[in-house]
Amino acid sequence: FKEKSRGVLREWYAHNPYPSPREKRELAEATGLTTTQVSNWFKNRRQRDR
């Protein structure tokens, strides 16, 4: 994950830790990652924050 991608994901996570499938697609396009990578990032981040 590039620093820029992580920044976008972290910013989004601060507002909404549970993005919808459509939001995940938009995030994937914005970061250049796949929707699966975006989903996993959020899942792992939520797990880490428990």
Score class of each variant (00 low, 15 high):
1 F>Q: 01
1 F>S: 13
1 F>I: 07
1 F>D: 12
1 F>R: 00
1 F>L: 07
2 K>I: 12
2 K>C: 08
2 K>Q: 10
2 K>Y: 15
2 K>H: 14
3 E>C: 06
3 E>P: 04
3 E>V: 05
3 E>M: 13
3 E>Y: 11
4 K>E: 13
4 K>A: 09
5 S>K: 09
5 S>A: 12
6 R>Y: 15
6 R>T: 13
6 R>M: 15
6 R>L: 15
6 R>V: 15
6 R>S: 11
7 G>V: 14
7 G>F: 13
7 G>Q: 15
7 G>C: 13
7 G>N: 14
7 G>P: 07
8 V>L: 11
8 V>N: 07
8 V>W: 04
9 L>F: 04
10 R>C: 13
10 R>P: 06
10 R>Y: 12
10 R>Q: 14
10 R>A: 12
10 R>G: 11
10 R>W: 12
11 E>S: 06
11 E>A: 08
11 E>D: 09
11 E>W: 00
12 W>S: 06
13 Y>W: 04
13 Y>H: 01
13 Y>C: 04
13 Y>V: 02
13 Y>N: 02
14 A>I: 09
14 A>T: 10
14 A>W: 06
14 A>L: 09
14 A>D: 13
15 H>N: 15
15 H>C: 12
15 H>P: 01
15 H>G: 12
15 H>R: 10
15 H>T: 14
16 N>E: 11
16 N>V: 01
16 N>C: 14
16 N>D: 06
16 N>I: 03
16 N>G: 05
16 N>T: 12
16 N>M: 00
16 N>P: 03
17 P>T: 05
17 P>N: 12
17 P>R: 08
17 P>I: 15
17 P>E: 07
17 P>W: 04
18 Y>Q: 10
18 Y>D: 08
18 Y>H: 08
19 P>S: 00
19 P>M: 02
19 P>I: 05
20 S>G: 10
20 S>L: 09
20 S>E: 11
21 P>F: 10
21 P>E: 14
21 P>A: 11
21 P>W: 02
21 P>I: 09
21 P>G: 07
22 R>H: 15
22 R>P: 14
22 R>I: 15
22 R>M: 15
22 R>S: 15
23 E>N: 01
23 E>K: 09
23 E>Q: 07
23 E>C: 03
23 E>Y: 00
24 K>H: 09
24 K>S: 13
24 K>P: 01
24 K>G: 10
25 R>E: 15
25 R>T: 15
25 R>W: 12
25 R>L: 14
26 E>N: 01
26 E>S: 06
26 E>K: 03
27 L>V: 09
27 L>F: 01
27 L>K: 00
27 L>S: 01
27 L>C: 03
27 L>E: 03
27 L>R: 01
27 L>M: 13
27 L>G: 02
28 A>K: 00
28 A>S: 11
28 A>P: 01
28 A>V: 04
28 A>Y: 06
28 A>Q: 00
29 E>Q: 06
29 E>M: 06
29 E>F: 05
29 E>Y: 03
29 E>S: 07
30 A>W: 06
30 A>C: 11
30 A>F: 05
31 T>P: 00
31 T>S: 11
31 T>M: 05
31 T>A: 11
31 T>L: 08
31 T>Q: 04
32 G>K: 04
32 G>C: 07
32 G>M: 08
32 G>W: 02
33 L>M: 13
33 L>W: 11
33 L>R: 08
33 L>I: 06
33 L>S: 05
33 L>G: 02
34 T>D: 05
34 T>K: 14
34 T>P: 05
34 T>N: 15
35 T>A: 13
35 T>W: 14
35 T>P: 15
35 T>H: 10
36 T>R: 14
36 T>P: 09
36 T>H: 13
36 T>W: 07
37 Q>F: 10
37 Q>D: 06
37 Q>I: 07
37 Q>V: 07
37 Q>G: 06
37 Q>R: 07
37 Q>E: 08
37 Q>W: 04
38 V>F: 00
38 V>P: 02
38 V>L: 03
38 V>I: 10
39 S>A: 10
39 S>E: 14
39 S>I: 03
39 S>C: 09
39 S>Y: 06
40 N>V: 10
40 N>W: 09
40 N>C: 08
40 N>A: 09
40 N>M: 11
40 N>Y: 08
41 W>C: 02
41 W>Q: 00
41 W>M: 01
41 W>F: 08
41 W>A: 05
42 F>H: 01
42 F>V: 01
42 F>E: 04
42 F>A: 02
43 K>H: 10
43 K>M: 07
43 K>L: 06
43 K>N: 13
43 K>S: 15
44 N>C: 12
44 N>H: 13
44 N>Q: 03
44 N>K: 12
45 R>F: 06
45 R>V: 11
45 R>S: 10
45 R>Y: 03
45 R>Q: 11
45 R>G: 04
45 R>T: 15
46 R>Q: 13
46 R>H: 03
46 R>G: 03
46 R>F: 03
46 R>N: 10
47 Q>P: 10
48 R>F: 14
48 R>Q: 11
48 R>I: 09
49 D>L: 00
49 D>A: 04
50 R>C: 05
50 R>G: 12
50 R>V: 05
